[in-house]
Simulated scan of single mutants.
Amino acid sequence: MRRIIVLGSTGSIGTQALDVIRANPRRFELVGLAAGTNAELLAEQAEQFRVADTALGATDAEQLVRDVEADVVLNAITGSIGLGATLAALNAGRTLALANKESLIVGGSLVQAAAAPGQIVPVDSEHSALAQALRSGTHDEVRRLVVTASGGPFRGRSRSEMRDITPQEALAHPTWDMGRVVTTNSATLVNKGLEVIEAHLLFDIDYDDIDVVVHPQSIVHSMVEFIDGSTIAQASPPDMRLPISLGLDWPNRVGGVGRPLDWTKATSWTFEPLDEEAFPAVALAKAVGRAGATFPAVYNAANEQAVDAFHEGRLSFLGITDTIARVVDAHEPPAALTVESLAEAEGWARRKADALIAASA
């Protein structure tokens, strides 16, 4: 029986995690819940699962992690505000099921230094797929990681064809049902850029050896190419309950959590190269990742401001990645990476992005 704390319990990943826990009462015990602002749903969840320990807001979520005895903390908070909870879980010795990729990306070496080997288990479908495929060989036998992308709702469009995209169009993801920020990030492919940085940090693979390929069907969630020419892929219908269940009970598999592929039906899977001219966010993320220090935090913070401005009608769709690039280009990193310097860099990036957005209006 694994004791679980779910942070971000009212969001997409959090509610699906509760589905997994509900279906496996002899395997998982829910001992803590935290949400951002949805107090009403949080209270309903606590009552349904008979959980006494809850928290509202990121600061209280961190304290919950420190105070409640648990084996696994699922961090499904959205955004870099989840960094404190990630560090709290690691410092408390919990297994961290990480859906809050931003905390690893922003925290970088701080998170890596706090984590024991194997303490972080990825929940993103792509990184869960890589973790599964990497069990087929040693680190020295890996040639490259191939991260798949659906291509989002604007796959195949040129840059000029995306000038007048509306927020409603950006939220019409063809495969996944996610929140506003992640769905928009998938449309710009900023999300895929963040996932490349995450893959580098999780698996210690050089950026030159991490590729992104467009796979519209979202069946192959990522692949590992080995030095002998073999490629191991993890394939399943798009359902986040599978990687969530692995995050909660790694490396054990939870029976019946997802449906298998139907091999009796004819089907086709396609793979396409990424159009980096139309979607420059991935190449920019690789450059940011190589620069390290506070650059990933600045990339992420500028994006969050730009996404908000886009949905509020103050910025064009193409202006999101343009704003990120301009903020990153203007950034001067601090001498040392600390929690305080990260916070200062993020604050600067948000102010800089807001100023650029206001000037472009």
Rank of each mutant, 00 (worst) to 15 (best):
G79A: 07
R290M: 13
P122S: 15
A97N: 03
L318A: 09
V298L: 07
Q48T: 07
K101G: 05
D228I: 13
P174V: 05
L30F: 14
A129R: 12
Q63I: 09
V65C: 08
V31W: 15
I197A: 05
T267L: 11
M162G: 06
A76Y: 15
E69F: 00
H221P: 07
F226E: 12
L315F: 03
D71R: 07
M240Y: 12
V146N: 11
V123C: 04
V31Y: 15
F154Q: 08
I244W: 11
I120Y: 02
I77N: 10
D249Y: 15
P280E: 04
N38H: 05
G258Q: 12
P243I: 07
Q168L: 02
V328N: 07
R155V: 04
V182M: 15
P25E: 01
Y207M: 14
L246K: 07
V51S: 13
T175R: 14
E44Y: 00
A353P: 03
A46Y: 12
A92V: 03
N300G: 11
V147I: 14
V68A: 12
T59N: 04
N303Q: 11
A149G: 04
N191C: 12
I320C: 06
G258P: 00
A85G: 12
R314F: 07
A172R: 09
L171R: 04
D177Q: 06
F295M: 08
A235V: 09
T95R: 12
G84L: 12
S236H: 01
D308W: 01
G156C: 14
N24C: 09
A170T: 06
R159I: 00
M240W: 03
E346G: 15
G57C: 12
P25Y: 03
G256Q: 09
S186D: 03
S109G: 00
I210V: 01
T86G: 09
H173V: 07
A306V: 08
A325C: 05
E272N: 14
R314E: 15
D53R: 15
E272C: 09
Q119W: 03
A149I: 07
E225F: 11
A116C: 04
P167H: 10
S222G: 02
L318E: 04
G137N: 10
A291Y: 06
E29G: 09
S109H: 00
L134S: 08
A46R: 13
N38P: 01
V123Y: 08
H221R: 10
D249K: 08
N100P: 05
V220H: 04
Q305M: 01
E29F: 00
L242S: 02
